[in-house]
């Protein structure tokens, strides 16, 4: 459990980090290290260079800008948990955060790292998808925004180019009629979820509109259950459960069939949350 040899450089500016990243094809960025270091120690990957971005000023922070909540990539989970802006304007993130690992992990782990790592069972990518958020990627040619739906490409695979750094994520700030729901099932507190569901909607009269259901832990990436969304917009929870078009693979915790059943249970619980608030 010792990593293969690697070089280490601490970048002081984004430009320096980008120059280092461009200069070495198998270099990796080091953020909170909560996923990367475990992978290195298990020799699942052996990059030749680690570029530490923890010393880059201005790469963390949470702000409300033009109706959007902007979270800089290096913001730690723990900082987000304490943020009033998150509590008020990104309530789905606020609900999801306590489920991510344990306090020690949340003290180091970063929101940008979670999105860049793109674990299929991670909470944050699903939240981004449920909220129709976007990430900001900075590369040699400047910044670009990538919608969540276009960002997560596959298992641990994103639309980020090798020479790009994820610099921020942006979410529409919650309005008066926004509704969110979140639930996950993990065998032990702090484990990655067996199945999880992050949801957002808009209250419309007695019902819900613009329902977005993002499941995690059920496939290669977080996925939306669009047929169930449509049923929920008609306020028919059981039809939504019946319409769940998920096909989760088996893993060491449960078979796909069990996960599918649990996805239905979560849907009933999350629908309740969405409607209660409505």
């Amino acid at each position: 459990m010792k990593p293969a040899p690697f070089a280490y450089k601490k970048a002081r500016t984004l430009d320096e980090a980008m120059a280092l990243l461009g200069g070495q094809p198998d270099a990796r960025l080091l953020a909170g290290g909560q996923s990367l270091i475990a992978g290195l120690n298990m020799r699942l990957s052996a990059p030749s260079l680690l570029i530490d971005i923890n010393g880059i000023a201005g790469l963390d922070g949470i702000a409300l800008k033009d109706g959007k909540v902007e979270i800089a990539a290096l913001t730690r989970y723990a900082a987000a948990e304490r943020s009033d802006i998150i509590a008020k304007h990104a309530p789905l993130i606020a609900r999801a955060l306590p489920h991510i690992g344990h306090v020690a992990i949340r003290n180091r782990g970063t929101l940008g790292g979670s999105l860049a790592y793109a674990d299929p069972a991670a909470e944050l990518p699903a939240c981004l998808l449920a909220l129709d958020g976007e990430v900001e990627a900075t590369g040699p040619k400047g910044k670009r925004s990538i919608k969540a739906v276009d960002f997560f490409k596959g298992l641990f695979e994103t639309a980020l180019r090798p020479d790009e750094i994820l610099t921020a994520l942006r979410l529409p700030a919650a309005g008066k009629d926004s509704r969110v729901g979140f639930a996950e099932l993990a065998r032990r507190h702090g484990d990655y979820a067996m199945v999880g569901l992050a949801a957002s909607a808009r209250a419309a009269g007695k019902g819900l509109a613009d329902v977005r259901l993002a499941y995690f832990g059920v496939g290669a990436t977080a996925v939306r259950a669009k047929k169930a969304e449509a049923a929920l917009e008609k306020s028919d929870v059981e039809a939504a459960v019946a319409a769940l078009d998920l096909d989760p693979p088996d893993d060491v915790q449960a078979t796909g069939a069990t996960k599918k059943h649990l996805a239905g249970v979560l849907l009933r619980r999350v629908a309740q949350q969405l409607m209660e608030a409505a």
Binding site: M42, R187, R188, H189, G190, D191, Y192, V252, Q253
Partner: peptide
């Protein structure tokens, strides 16, 4: 409730790490 060394029919341990082999923890 938790601990199980899961082997496949080829004698391969499938969950030999602290993420997949669940030891009981304080919260539960």
């Amino acid at each position: 409730l938790f601990e199980h060394c899961l082997y496949d029919e080829r004698g391969q341990l499938l969950n030999g790490n602290m993420a997949d082999y669940l030891v009981p923890m304080a919260m539960e």
